[in-house]
Amino acid sequence: MFVFFCPHCGENREEEEFGYGGEAFIPRPATPETLNDDAWGDYLFMRKNPKGWHWEMWSHNTGCRKFFVVKRNTATNAIAGSWTLSDGRKAYDAEGGAT
């Protein structure tokens, strides 16, 4: 069971307070109609699913109800940090958006 630091509440909290929000930074295409079926299918279904570092969202369900970003290692369950959505985007981009 994880302990997450909620960047909004500013406290470490137990995993039971949170819900998983899926892989982070999958922006919705601005003009879905211009995408072919393959590209739209990628947006709908394809996820990185890495063994290693993964940028993902969690929602502080029983607390502030905010979605935020966690960088977690799926192999070791180590957590590198948690950020608000906008700060997380900056940290993610600073890594080149890579895994």
């Binding site: 819900g19 929000g21 929602s59 369900n61 109800r65 905010k66 979605f67 959505l85």
Partner: peptide, 9 residues
């Protein structure tokens, strides 16, 4: 939660 997610993200 679905509505909040779309609004927040």
């Amino acid at each position: 939660s679905w509505l909040e997610k779309w609004h927040q993200t």
